[in-house]
Every structure is written in structure tokens, then in C-alpha cells.
Write a protein that binds this DNA or RNA. Structure first.
Lengths: 247, 247
DNA sequence: GCGCCTATGTTCGCTGGCGTACAGACAGGC
DNA sequence: GCCTGTCTGTACGCCAGCGAACATAGGCGC
């Protein structure tokens, strides 16, 4: 990608007022995120908060028997490491890079100072946390009631929202890990979606051809999370990025 | 129950320093919570935060097709209405009284003022919120991977932790709604647990005879949530209740 | 250009939980 | 003390998803 990196590529950082942003910017460090990188594991002390720009991070739980399940994802709309300001410092979950890319990271102490400052950053982070809770809530219900195909559609759409192109780079095996289902189940569901003309895939690449088609087959969960996230964060959005917005 | 009601019966209220507590106490109102009462529904504006003493509230999601699933529960260890201070004001979920009892409620504005005061209340509420997130996270994974019987054990244990006696008053039908499974599935699992001598039940009453037995059959999820909740809140616990603690 | 590794396709039997249906049995109200 | 409504027990067929096993094929490294 020829585009220059910028913290503005992360929605949370993009809406900070200039004064707040300038205070932070010296501490922001651009880091590459490789597929499979583990940002933290259960009980581990987080040292940084991560604000993804092009990377996507999966918050997942691994059961004692080794089965995994993604309960929430974080892309350029959010941040990884809410427990740093919630007071717990660690969590029982893991954070794994699901789509390679970049993120800006901020040392733990700086984030905590900024949170206690009571500026926009605090309300922004709290609202984002509520959006994250909505996502977790919805995933829980989705895991109980919806089919693999519905969940695959939900997952594809959510991932698509976090990347610039219409093509995701991932294998069916990895998707199966995220959803916590068998790889074969993903193969079958993906095959049906391809037959329907909604997606096209080849070894590790999935191109979305018909977004509306996927939305029609997805369960409500995708729309609920998207709508709620937008409600929680939209009135804060674009303050800095579009200072002269007309409407 | 002959015991007098007291805000101290709620763990969060019990640990507030006297000065903080006294400021709030005039605004605390004891309210009865009847089985099935809905404290809020998706999108509705919350007017109060609820601190249960003997009641238990279920945070659940109802799918478009009408299926329900409890994603987290709130008893005397916590509060209902975190979205009031998270900034969203409402949520996409419902809160329903699962076990009748009492709670103290606090008007929305008072809670928000107190939260912004930066006292212990703020860190307490944030830590509790993280505990709630842990619960949601774990329920999501549990819904994906564990059997009805394991989940029933988890649910019984979690409920037991929130009531004084060893007997819960609920029907299998209601439990099925909480877990998001069929009533028959609960009947079968409960029958096995009774055969094993862990519980005994009759029309709407379940007595737990062997807690350790249930723990052995439950999935790890119960222990994970319990341990993490205790980690997040224990060092704050008992500040007021045991002002002269020795160690 | 060849070969190997890894991703995907397909099958088979199995089982947990679902939807439906109905029978018994307990408990509270009158 | 009876009756009725609710709660619980049981049975049936069905299907989504699981676990295991193996076949095929695409793409990268050399």
C-alpha cells in the first residue's frame, strides 16, 4: 500500500481534538502486526494499548480442551486493551492478530494518565468499551442460536468493514478457529455462498462480490452491532477530521 | 425473611467509604423486584441504576425469532445499568428479574455525578464493569462449546452464589429460557444431576445438596468468572464493612 | 519446471439438541 | 376435598454440526 501511515486511520484517534491529540502523538508508535501475533494472553500484563489502522485483532477465549472462540474483534474502529483503564490491567482472554497490518500503540501509563484527565478521550474510550460489550453480548447470543452460515456472513461483513478493499486474506481454517467451528463447516457454508455468487475465493483469499447478498443471509447480529457502534461513537466522530463539515 | 434490609447487603455499596456512602444514602431507594419485572428493554432510557441485595437480574438478548439467551447475571455482587456511566445511556439488551427479591436503586443523575467525582465509586464501577465483561465473554465461549448439562451446573452455581440459602425458587422452563435451550433439555440434565444426588427438586424449587459435585460437572466457565470477579473486586472489598481488619 | 506443503473438497457415521406431542403429577385456589 | 393450571417426564423423528479420514488441487520455494 502506497498510502502513508497516519494515526487518523484509526477512528478513535481521528476524532480527538487537536490539543488532546498533540499531547499523545509523541507517544504513539507505529508497529507492524503480523498474522498470529499474540498481543496478550490470559493473565498477562498489558504494556500497551493498540489502535489498529489496517490490522484486525481478535479477542478470543481458548477453552481448557483447546477449543477457541472469538467473542469480539477490533479493527480501525477501536482499540485493544480496555482493561488498562477499567482497572483490571489484565483479562482472562487472548488478543491475536487476525489480519496483518499496522497499529499505533501507546504505553500503558500514558493511556491511563489520559483517561484520568477527563477529556474527550475518557468518554470516547468508555463509549467504545460499551460498543465492545455490545459486540460480546451479541456474539454470545449468536453462538447460541444462529447457524454456521449465518455466522460466517456476519464475520465476513464485520471484517470487510475494517479493511479498505473488498478482498480478505485468510483461510477457511482460520475462520473456523475464529467462529469456533470445524473447518469443514466453513468449507460447506462458503461453498454455498460462492454458489450463490456472493463471494469468490481461492487459497487464502476471499473476494466479496455481493455485500447485500451476504447481509441478507447473515443473522441480525451484524446489523445490531454495527448500528449500536455507530450510535455510540458517531456523534463524536470526525470532530478533527472534518472541522468544517457543512451539515 | 426477618432480616432488616440494608444497602450493605450489596457488595458494591458495602465497600464504599463512609463519606461516599453517606452522600449517596439519601438517594438510595429500596424497591421490591418481582419475578419477570423488566428493568429495561432494548433502546429504552434507563432512569435508575439498581444494586440488588436479594434479587437477581438477568441480562439477556432476545433474537428476532424470539429465542432468548442470558449473557450475564447480576446479583448482590454488582449493579444493573452500567451504560449510565459508560456514556451510551441505553443498551441493545434487556434486564429481567430472574429471582424475586429487593434492590436499592439510585437515580440516573446521582449515579453519573458520583461517577464523575473520581472517588472510589468510579474505580469500583469500572472494575465491576470489567467483571461483567468477563462474564459476557465466558458465556459467549460457553454457548459455543459446552453441553447443556455443563451450562446448567454453571448456572446453578452462579445463582447459588447470589442467594443466602441453598434452595433456588425457579422452574425448569425459566432456566431453559436463561440458557437459551429447550425445557426438555433442562429436564433431562436436571434428572441426571438428581440421580447423581447433587440436587433435589420439586415443582419450582431446586435444593442443592452437593455443591462440589456440581462444580465437578460444570465447565470451567463458572470458576473462571468467579475467580476473575474476585480478583477485580476483592482488594476493594470490605473497606467499610471491616474497618478494623487485622491483616 | 518440479515437488512439496498447505488449503480445500467430500464422505461417513455419530450424537446432542431441536420441534412436536402428549401423559402424569403436584400444588394452590375455591 | 376437588379441580384446574402449571410443572415435569418421556418418546419420536429430524438435522446441524462433530470427528475422523482421505482425495484433490493450487501456489510457493527451489
Amino acid at each position: 500500500m502506497a498510502l502513508a501511515h497516519s494515526p487518523d486511520q484509526n477512528h478513535l484517534l481521528a476524532v480527538l481534538p487537536n490539543t488532546d491529540f498533540e499531547r499523545l502523538s509523541a507517544h504513539l508508535e507505529l508497529v507492524p502486526m503480523l498474522l498470529g501475533d499474540m498481543l496478550y494472553e490470559p493473565g498477562g500484563q498489558l504494556q500497551h494499548a493498540y489502535f489498529p489502522t489496517s490490522a484486525i485483532v481478535s479477542l478470543q477465549y481458548i477453552t481448557e480442551s483447546g477449543a477457541s472462540a472469538e467473542i469480539a474483534g477490533v479493527g480501525n474502529e477501536g482499540m485493544v486493551g480496555v482493561s488498562l483503564f477499567m482497572g483490571g490491567d489484565t483479562t482472562t482472554s487472548s488478543a491475536v492478530v487476525q489480519t496483518a497490518g499496522h497499529a499505533y500503540r501507546l504505553p500503558r501509563g500514558i493511556l491511563q494518565l489520559e483517561f484520568d484527565r477527563l477529556g474527550l478521550m475518557k468518554s470516547l474510550l468508555l463509549r467504545y468499551t460499551q460498543a465492545l460489550m455490545t459486540q460480546m453480548f451479541q456474539t454470545g447470543a449468536c453462538n447460541r442460536h444462529h447457524s454456521v452460515e449465518q455466522q460466517l456472513c456476519r464475520w465476513l461483513l464485520a471484517t470487510l468493514d475494517r479493511i479498505p478493499s473488498g478482498e480478505l486474506v485468510t483461510t477457511q481454517e482460520l475462520i473456523a478457529n475464529m467462529l469456533g467451528v470445524r473447518r469443514e463447516g466453513v468449507t460447506e457454508a462458503a461453498g454455498r455462498l460462492q454458489d450463490a455468487g456472493f463471494i469468490r475465493y481461492r487459497r487464502g483469499h476471499i473476494a466479496v462480490l455481493d455485500r447485500a447478498g451476504l447481509e441478507a443471509r447473515a443473522c441480525e447480529c451484524y446489523a445490531v452491532v454495527r448500528k449500536e457502534t455507530s450510535r455510540l461513537l458517531s456523534d463524536l466522530r470526525q470532530r478533527r477530521a472534518e472541522p468544517t463539515a457543512i451539515r
